[in-house]
Design a protein around this nucleic acid. Structure first.
Length: 192
DNA sequence: AATCGGATCGTCT
DNA sequence: GACGATCCGATTG
């Protein structure tokens, strides 16, 4: 078990999205350890029209332009939060990886309570769902995820047998790019 | 399994 | 003032 380092995130955003599959998200909340394995991600960079940082920094998107390995969290559709990690190479102004789905590991009962939902299958199989299950809100905006704290990433050595690249979900621009990564066949994907 | 509408609000035009 | 990197429950096949 080791923390993901700063240098892990200081690389091409698409590579980071690919390599995050199989890693573990750890949330420490009210004495609970809530953890899950990443099974679905999407890459967004400022060169890409679908990215929130495409038109330059705004108060909302400033974290995307900040240090890599920190959290970029946004509120969407009036009711959901979504978790991203800032990741980009040193030549790129902004970029991040959206964590789209987790396979729940520890703290499942507490996640069920936070989600007000018992079906384990639907606990963390979507960006808004996993944010609710891990109680991820704006208060974690900008958190450094490379140190232990309220939220961070771990590598337990797990290697996905296979990784598949697909089109990203729910965007109107940049639809052609295959920048969504999944562990195919996993039970906790948001889509097949 | 697939489709559809409602909920709900911060952000930028 | 419109819309979005969504989710859920209900309805229909």
């Amino acid at each position: 078990m080791k923390l993901l380092s700063r240098s892990f995130f200081l690389r091409n955003t698409v590579d980071v999205a690919h390599d995050l599959l199989g890693k573990i998200v750890v949330r420490e909340y009210r004495g609970q350890m809530l953890t899950g394995r990443i099974v679905e991600t999407e890459a967004y960079t400022c060169l890409d029209e679908a990215c929130h940082g495409f038109r330059g920094p705004t108060p909302r998107t400033q974290a995307l332009f900040g240090p890599v390995g920190h959290a970029y969290i946004y509120f969407i559709y009036g009711m959901h939060y979504a978790l991203n990690v800032v990741a980009r190479d040193k030549h790129t102004a902004a970029g991040g990886v959206l964590i789209r789905a987790l396979e729940p590991l520890q703290g499942i009962e507490y996640m069920q309570k936070l989600r007000k939902l018992n079906k384990i299958k639907n606990l963390t199989n979507g960006p808004g769902k996993l944010a609710q299950a891990l109680h991820i809100t704006k208060t974690l905006y900008g958190t450094d995820l490379t140190h232990k704290g309220e939220l961070y990433f771990m590598d337990d050595g797990f290697k996905p047998e296979k990784i598949k690249a697909t089109k990203r979900i729910g965007i109107s621009k940049g639809q052609e790019s295959l920048w969504r990564f999944i562990i195919p066949g996993n039970h906790f994907l948001s889509h097949k």
